[in-house]
């Protein structure tokens, strides 16, 4: 799957920013066509919402400054809607901007972003009637970091997309571009059972505890505590993060491994039953830390122990896992 979309020479030259699309691969032409259709529809919807006064701001994707990048844009005038784009580089989870936003907002959401939004709605961080949700049927976003590591010669789907089971938001007002085509096996939305979405976690769980500890130690030791993961996360919306608290102080200022661990383990626990695996944290991390090892484990446990899938249609609107209780909840892990 990860080698499906080959492109070449995409990482060179700032002028080539428009050419960073899927091409020269089997699905490329069809995928580009579908993406263009979605983009046109996003622009049409945004223009209409803005001119009808249905929204004050429309949050979508615009052209970035590097070939591999797009950038979040905040459109307030209908005539500026032409700046909106859609393609496989649209990696940001725009839902992160919604809590606390003033007025009425329109927002473009992929499947994962839509699950994040469902959680924010359930956790009463955003008001449904101030939102216009523009969903897209997502075919996955490109993992620019691994593309760069490969010298720009291959396109990889982001790891989250490779295990994504629902490519469309559970709640929306518009589906831009309509249905874009059949699910690609092994791509977003593949629920065929041909793959184990938690295979990587199962493999990791099977390792010796010392090996797991060493792995996490190595990963988190690279952390520079820039909090990009937290800031990019649509579900890390606490007005004051425990990591910033001075009394009591949870994170020491000497930035020891244990301090970094406390932050990342604490954050993972706070996201248990809430993380929807949009992958925004790992994409934001400048140190390439494997943050999903923890959050996917939380996701897996939530599903396997409690049958809870955060943000998915069935669970959308439900209380957070840690805020709900049934007599049937397993307790065999309690001594």
């Amino acid at each position: 799957m990860s080698d499906l979309l080959g492109v070449s020479g995409i990482m060179s030259g700032i002028g080539g920013m428009n050419n960073w699309k899927r091409d020269s691969d089997v699905n490329g032409a069809a995928a580009n066509e579908a993406a263009d259709r979605v983009a046109q529809d996003i622009r049409r919807i945004a223009r209409k919402l803005l001119s009808d006064g249905e929204v004050d701001v429309f949050i979508g994707y615009g052209q970035g400054t590097l070939p591999s990048r797009v950038t979040p844009v905040f459109i307030t005038r209908p005539e500026d809607a032409d700046a909106l784009i859609w393609d496989a580089r649209c990696e940001n989870d725009l839902v992160v901007y919604l809590p606390g936003i003033e007025g009425k907002a329109g927002v473009v959401v992929k499947g994962c972003d839509g699950r994040a939004l469902a959680r924010l709605l359930a956790e009463k961080q955003v008001e449904r009637d101030r939102l216009k949700i523009v969903a897209v049927e997502c075919a996955g976003v490109i993992d620019r970091k691994s593309v760069k590591r490969d010298g720009g010669n291959r396109v990889h789907l982001h790891p989250s997309c490779q295990v994504c089971e629902e490519r469309t938001a559970p709640v929306y007002d518009f589906l831009a571009g309509g249905a874009t085509g059949p699910v690609v096996p092994g791509g977003p939305g593949d629920k065929s059972g041909s793959r184990d979405p938690f295979g990587e976690i199962r493999e990791f769980e099977a390792r010796a505890s010392e090996e797991r500890w060493n792995y996490f130690s190595q990963e988190f030791d690279r952390c520079i505590l820039c909090y990009a993961c937290r800031q990019a996360c649509p579900l890390c919306y606490c007005p004051e993060c425990f990591a910033d608290r001075a009394t009591p102080k949870w994170i020491g200022k000497d930035r020891a491994l244990s301090d970094k661990m406390v932050f990342h383990l604490g954050r993972a626990i706070h996201l248990a039953g809430r993380c929807i695996d949009c992958g925004a944290c790992v994409r934001a991390c400048p140190m390439g830390i494997d943050l999903r090892k923890l959050t996917r484990k939380m996701e897996k446990d939530a599903r396997e122990l409690f049958g809870y899938e955060a943000g998915k249609a069935a669970a959308a609107g439900a209380l957070p896992l840690f805020a709900s209780f049934t007599r049937e909840d397993p307790d065999d892990f309690i001594l």
Binding site: V96, C226, Y227, A228, Q231, A232, P286
Partner: peptide, 9 residues
């Protein structure tokens, strides 16, 4: 987003 990736790096 208000992170410090820019400042720290």
């Amino acid at each position: 987003l208000g992170c410090a990736a820019c400042a720290y790096l």
